[in-house]
Write a protein that binds this DNA or RNA. Structure first.
Lengths: 119, 119
DNA sequence: CTCTATGCAAAAACTTTGCAGGGAT
DNA sequence: ATCCCTGCAAAGTTTTTGCATAGAG
């Protein structure tokens, strides 16, 4: 997957700020929080927030809020669920899940609980 | 279920502010937001937040964040999942769900998607 | 009586907005 | 050349904290 294409495919402008944000997200193996994305990125917080919002509205990013009340982001890829440990706040992606809920069109599943390590 | 017992069972003090918050939550048929709970409750916002946190840490309340980025609360009862429509933000409780995830101890499931009405 | 809970005020943390200049197409 | 994006500063929103007093057990 190419970061530049993610941006240009959406007909939005390719800027340094946007590429830097997506690079961080591309390298992440799990959803990561605002703070983890922003880190020391040399850009204003306004630009940062505006781009995160833009990416979400363009469908480049998915996000959800975990039990620790932080918002986590990931590049949108094949649909899968997330397990978030309420003790250590670790996030795990769960690829295979079957909910048997035909009447709903499901876009996103978050499961909170206690992971094997913390039990 | 008795509101006073919910509080006293946890060995925390029974106050008017706490009972008022739990009364609102007891009457709700679905999870409700901060604003819906607070409404015109005659108490300081600091007291309100402190008590909501206290209730959560004592296990009296459950909470989750929906797609509208608001946090929703409900009295903790028999475990069940919540479906939240990403269009109309309606919350539905789903009592029967089988995830087949034995290695995790699941406390809370949030499913985002599009409800039958909005499809 | 003791210790927790409350209200108030202030601060901290988080997010959004307006505007002028810079940069991508 | 046009229009979108950016940085900066300021304002708005939400949540937390310190402290003195009130109130529950």
């Amino acid at each position: 997957m190419n970061i530049e294409d993610l941006i240009t495919d959406k007909k939005i402008k390719l800027t340094v700020a946007r590429m830097k944000i997506l690079e961080i997200l591309k390298d992440a193996v799990k959803p990561i929080s605002y703070d983890e994305i922003k880190g020391d990125l040399p850009m204003d917080k306004a630009t940062f927030y505006r781009n995160i919002l833009k990416f979400e509205s363009e469908g480049i990013l998915n996000s959800f809020e975990a039990n620790d009340r932080k918002r986590y982001f990931e590049l949108k890829k094949n649909p899968h669920a997330h397990f978030v440990c309420i003790i250590c706040n670790q996030v795990e992606c769960i690829e295979k899940i079957n909910l048997n809920l035909e009447k709903y069109q499901i876009s996103n599943v978050i499961i909170n609980g206690i992971c094997p390590k913390c039990q």
